[in-house]
Design a protein around this nucleic acid. Structure first.
Lengths: 153, 153
DNA sequence: CCTATTTTGGATAAAAGAGTCTCAATAACT
DNA sequence: AGTTATTGAGACTCTTTTATCCAAAATAGG
């Protein structure tokens, strides 16, 4: 798997937040219901994003979480790095420690190229971009929930 | 992680075999020593590759394993599919089941592109290609073992 | 001040991946 | 035939990831 499950959940939740970004705090319970993710598990993941400064939270009634920046200012890579770390973008395809231009494995060059493609994709894609696309074409954010049904209430 | 540890070990072992491909059977113990991989664990992995027809094995003294085809005829993708399956090349980046052209997630298009790049890299790279490169430049197949020191005995 | 709502943080449990161990089966050599 | 070298197969353990649960802290509203 490219991204851990935690990371995927973090991305989906971030897209959710970006999609209804009115500066309001959204309860995690609402998100976990809508996105069909275990509440407790999602809570843990969002705590990481909060710790990394991607989200901010507010306790108590009317509390919840929200993005600290505009969705246009948040790239997928920010969330991936916050949850999965930089392994994916630095690791050797053959698992050799310290593989790099200086002391490469035979696959290094080819893998570095591919890895850069992944990096670039994650770095150039913003939450807002995906939200706009998702809303325009009513794409899915859950097994059977399109953007339209996720935010009505 | 892109590839599982099993898969990485399988790739390293396959490269080892391709590098000394004289049609001889190589004992797994030799490979596990040279490649610094747990013997029992490597055994399991190579059993998978044998079951998938990528290797053939021979029991008893002078036994071991060898590639069933020439290294020029074995692509990295063959080994990845045999060990990790096709998940990497089919799965949705947001983990949604059945994500595809028909019922996509907002990230589908971009991810499909990147995924194809990975696929292509794995599909176009043969064992022999990497072995030649590895031998020519004495690259690493283990933490500190170059191609030159791995095959002398 | 009290209660309800919500995040925080830690403990625990279940599932998957990684790694180890043992014994059986096969084959070569003496 | 017996001994040794090797793969095959299954059980088992350890670690990491995924998931669940519970009590504590914060906050709004009555």
């Amino acid at each position: 798997m490219l991204l851990s499950k935690s990371c995927v959940y973090g991305l989906r939740a971030s897209l959710y937040l970006a999609a209804r970004n009115q500066g309001e705090f959204i309860p995690i319970r609402t998100m976990s219901d809508k996105l069909e993710i275990s509440f407790h598990f999602l809570t843990k993941i969002l705590q990481q994003l909060t710790a990394e400064g991607i989200l901010e939270s507010f306790k108590g009634p009317n509390g919840g979480v929200r993005l600290t920046r505009e969705g246009t200012e948040i790239q997928l890579i920010d969330i991936v790095l916050a949850i999965d770390g930089s392994q994916l973008l630095t690791e050797c395809a053959l698992g050799l420690p310290g593989c790099g231009v200086k002391n490469p494995c035979p696959l290094h060059d080819k893998w570095a190229e591919t890895r850069d493609a992944i990096h670039e994709m994650l770095e150039k894609t913003t939450l807002t971009e995906l939200v706009q696309k998702g809303k325009a074409e009513n794409l899915r954010l859950t097994t059977d929930g399109g953007f339209d049904i996720l935010f009505d209430n």
